[in-house]
Simulated assay, not measured.
Amino acid sequence: MEIQPNLPFLGMTELGGFGTLQNSNNKNGSCGTVVQDVQIKIVDLENAKVLEPNHLGELWLKTATIMNGYYKNLEATKSTVDEQGWLHSGDIGYIDEDGELFVIDRIKDLIKYRGHQISPGEIEGVLLLHPAVLEVAVTAIPHATDDEHPIAFVTKTPGAEVTEQELIDLVANNMMDQYKLRAGVIFLNALPYTSSGKIAKRELKAMAKKLVMK
Rank of each mutant, 00 (worst) to 15 (best):
E46T: 15
A200K: 07
L61N: 10
K112E: 12
F9A: 14
L56M: 15
Q36D: 14
H130I: 05
I3K: 05
F102K: 03
Q4P: 00
V136E: 01
T13D: 09
E124F: 02
L10F: 12
H55S: 12
N68K: 12
E52A: 09
Q117R: 14
F9M: 11
V138Y: 03
G16M: 03
K214A: 11
G121V: 04
E100S: 06
D177L: 10
T63G: 15
I123Y: 01
Y179S: 03
G125Q: 05
Q84K: 14
K205C: 04
T33A: 08
E124N: 01
E14G: 09
I168Y: 03
A160T: 08
T65P: 02
L110S: 09
E122Y: 02
N68A: 12
P158E: 14
E122G: 02
E83P: 00
V35R: 00
D146E: 14
P8D: 00
Q84M: 12
P142C: 08
E75I: 09
A183L: 11
V133P: 04
S119N: 13
Q36P: 00
I107R: 13
E148W: 08
G90R: 04
H130N: 11
Y179F: 15
T163C: 10
I3V: 12
Q36W: 13
A206G: 02
F187S: 03
V162K: 06
P142E: 09
C31S: 13
V38Y: 02
T157F: 01
Q22F: 01
G29W: 00
Q39K: 13
E164L: 00
Y193T: 11
T33V: 14
P131R: 01
L188Y: 09
K112R: 13
K214N: 10
V43W: 00
N47I: 09
M175K: 11
G184K: 08
L134K: 15
D82F: 06
L61Y: 11
N47V: 08
P142Q: 05
S79P: 00
L204W: 07
M12H: 11
E83M: 11
E46D: 10
A160M: 13
L211E: 10
K205I: 06
K49M: 13
E58M: 15
